[in-house]
Design a protein around this nucleic acid. Structure first.
Lengths: 235, 235
DNA sequence: GAGTGGTCTAGACCACACC
DNA sequence: GTGTGGTCTAGACCACTCC
């Protein structure tokens, strides 16, 4: 790290406090104004350093609440059909899902293309917010073929979909096509994840097929970018 | 997009110019000072909007040169053992690799662990820089078991390693374990990729095995985050 | 040498979280 | 109500690129 700039010095000083454990995961950082006094600089410069640490996933922010030390990343394997709750629990986190909305709606052209549906067909759209250890980390939109899952909306939608499919519809995820890239979080995802719109996130979208190779749903997962590491292997 | 802020209005205006094609991929944006005059604001605010567009992969910067409209992302499938040149060429880009350095060195503990090597063993370390259509997009470090590839450094190292392995050593990639997460680009990667250290990147690291399931090498790929979309599927 | 982005100063007001 | 981050102003100097 380049310590010839205020930027670099602040970054390094904070990083040391964090890696040494003086500031443990989850701890709140001193206020920006306090940091700017302590380093004899201005808030603009301090925010530059904080943004860089955020970029690196070392700290994260909650909109208008402050900056916090980031806990270790969740390991996410998109090729295993692991559900969120199981995955988080196995890694020692306390997962939670809250349903934001669930509707039966006409499909859009984009969704028709992803699900291989004709125009005017109906889908369910779920919007859900997921957290680990009380930190919201994931905003996810699911689009589900309505014809394959009658009365889906009558069930508990805060559980994992894969569990619901299996127990109520004798359907399991078999084949997954996924795609992933860094984005600036769009408005709704940002506000649900309690960050400023435009801050960094990771978009993972998946198209899922069942044991008969039928496309059954797709989803758009907006992750806070510090929250996960994607891992997979192939033979 | 929230147009109640200068930030949002600038972002939106630039985004429209880009998506409408007034500013085509590769085009240079007006200077920051010019933009700040045109939007009746200051450079600080303009840079906020530019950073947000950069976050989204819509524009990218070259250190001290300016801001440019980002071309479409390269599709990267880490589960296919595709080599960089082949992958880029198939998608209509002109790929290029330049060798920065190649040495035979003692392995570090981290590399020993990844390659399953005992202490004091030797590895080759390659550092290479890769570009598509003259834009540098990837800085990659390879660590290769020296015992499996005698005289490796005598060959042309600006070609794809998988080609070299296959033609000279009768060795092919068979099994890949990879891991991926967003990072702030570290010093060397940043300077090679011609960006400010601390700007956003994607780190992909892989451990590769050959047809006999022996670990043969590992690599650390630092991508400019706007340059790629990761895609894969599994059965 | 002119122009660019990179960094920085020293303030200000606002919306919101928390008490 | 107090303190926080979010946004913004109106400048400045430096390091570097490009001509």
């Amino acid at each position: 790290m380049d310590t010839n700039t205020h930027f670099g010095r602040i970054r390094q000083a904070l990083e040391e406090q964090i890696t040494s454990g003086v500031l443990p995961p989850g701890a709140r950082l001193p206020a920006e104004r306090l940091l700017s006094e302590r380093f004899h600089t201005t808030r603009v410069t301090v925010r530059g350093a904080l943004n860089s640490l955020e970029q690196d996933g070392i700290i994260y922010r909650e909109d208008r609440r402050g900056w916090f030390v980031a806990p270790p990343r969740l390991v996410y394997n998109p090729t295993k059909n692991a559900n969120f709750h199981q995955m988080a629990a196995e890694q020692g986190y306390a997962p939670d899902t809250s349903l934001i909305e669930a509707h039966r709606i006409p499909s859009t052209p984009q969704i028709q293309q992803m699900l291989g549906l004709p125009p005017l067909s109906q889908v369910y759209r779920l919007r859900r917010l997921r957290s680990i250890d009380q930190r919201v980390v994931l905003f996810v939109e699911n689009y589900i073929r309505a014809d394959y899952f009658p009365d889906l909306l009558d069930h508990d939608l805060s559980q994992s979909l894969s569990t619901l499919y299996q127990e109520r519809y004798q359907t399991v995820y078999q084949h997954v096509a996924f795609q992933l890239y860094p984005v600036a979080l769009p408005e709704q995802a940002a506000s649900q994840l309690k960050v400023t719109q435009g801050s960094a996130g990771l978009l993972i979208s998946r198209v899922n097929r069942d044991q008969s190779n039928r496309i059954i749903d797709c989803d758009f997962e907006y992750w806070r970018h510090y929250a996960l590491v994607v891992q997979a292997e192939t033979t």
